[in-house]
Simulated assay, not measured.
Amino acid sequence: MKPARQPLRLLLAAVGAAAMLSFLLLLAPPQNLSFFSSYSYSPYAHRPKLLFLLAGQSNMAGRGAVLHPLPEPYLPHPRILRLAASRRWVPAAPPLHADIDTHKTCGLGPAMPFAHRLLLRGHHVDDELLVLGLVPCAVGGTRIWMWAKGQPLYESAVARARAAVADGGGSIGGVLWFQGESDTIEIDDATSYGGKMERLVADLRADLQLPNLLVIQVGLASGEGNYTDIVREAQKNINIPNVLLVDAMGLPLRDDQLHLSTEAQLQLGNMLAEAYLKFNSSRGSML
């Protein structure tokens, strides 16, 4: 009987290995830089920060191809932090939305170059080193009604914003909003977009107790349906104080003709930063 034991032993070893592999696959660690950065420590984690909510759908979450090596505006910086899904502050490293927009493969978005540009222009705030806190909230494929007050995406964004302020203090500098591609599919969604966006801004300001909260929305560069022009027109016609429009039309797209390329995301980040800096300059801010 002894010769039969070796195949049995091999079979049991194979079953054990398969079970371990299945366990590891269930863990599904993100295959990106942010997985590693989530275990890194930043001495600025509990310092007051200038906070920015990153909200909307896939082009805000980032679908730009991850280049190797990373362009300099995407490299980690000790004073650029990200609020992880666990609501812990970790060093920001792309893809920023890997643990938020979990059903898709995230890539490069506009937030890292935006943050780098701000650091270049504002090294101190009230005699303190400027620390930036990015709060990812965007989820690909979402329509604007999914961001209405009471919906999970809205409530999660508000909760994350409050958590960001509570952990170390600081203030919310604004919301970077890039969404609307999914609202170009149905005519009813497209024609009602403007009213829903205005309601969203009002609800965020009320719930965050920031009546003058800055919202920088990105004008669509593309759409999933035939009503992109209607949504773009709605974006342009939103006439609320402290709501700015940065138009992405004309920026290069990936082959799918829907998502911005890495080059475009880098350019958009700089455009968003310039809009923010110009807005603050008009108010006499040092940053």
Rank of each mutant, 00 (worst) to 15 (best):
M1N: 14
P7G: 13
R9P: 02
R9H: 10
L12T: 15
A13C: 15
A18Y: 10
A19D: 08
L24D: 03
L26M: 15
L26C: 09
A28M: 04
P30Y: 01
P30H: 06
Q31C: 13
L33T: 11
Y39I: 07
S40C: 13
P43V: 07
H46W: 08
R47T: 11
R47N: 12
R47D: 14
P48V: 02
P48D: 03
L51D: 05
F52Y: 02
L53G: 01
L53C: 02
L54A: 00
L54E: 00
A55L: 14
Q57L: 05
M60D: 07
G64M: 14
V66K: 01
P71V: 00
P71Q: 02
L75M: 13
P76C: 09
H77D: 05
R79M: 06
A84W: 04
R88Q: 13
R88Y: 08
R88H: 13
P91A: 02
A92R: 01
A92T: 02
L96T: 00
A98H: 02
D99T: 11
I100L: 03
I100E: 02
D101F: 06
T102P: 05
T105F: 08
C106H: 02
G107D: 00
G107R: 01
P110W: 03
H116N: 07
L118P: 07
L119Q: 08
L120V: 09
R121E: 09
H124G: 07
L130Y: 12
V131Y: 00
V131S: 06
L132Y: 01
G133E: 00
L134Y: 01
V135N: 02
V139A: 14
G140S: 07
T142Y: 03
T142N: 11
M146K: 15
W147C: 14
L153A: 10
L153H: 10
Y154M: 12
E155L: 13
R162M: 07
R162W: 06
A164K: 08
G168F: 09
S171M: 15
G174M: 10
L176Y: 01
T184I: 06
T184R: 05
E186I: 02
I187D: 11
A190G: 09
A190C: 07
T191P: 05
G194P: 11
G195F: 04
K196F: 11
M197P: 06
D207A: 06
I216G: 05
I216A: 05
Q217Y: 06
E224D: 04
G225K: 04
N226Q: 13
Y227F: 10
D229M: 08
I230P: 04
I230R: 10
I230K: 05
R232Q: 09
A234H: 12
K236C: 09
P241Q: 15
N242Y: 01
N242G: 08
V243C: 04
V243Q: 03
G250S: 13
L251S: 05
L251W: 05
L253C: 12
R254I: 07
Q257S: 13
H259L: 12
L260G: 06
A264H: 00
Q265G: 00
L266N: 03
G269Y: 00
G269T: 01
A273Q: 00
E274I: 03
Y276R: 06
L277S: 06
K278E: 14
S285K: 12
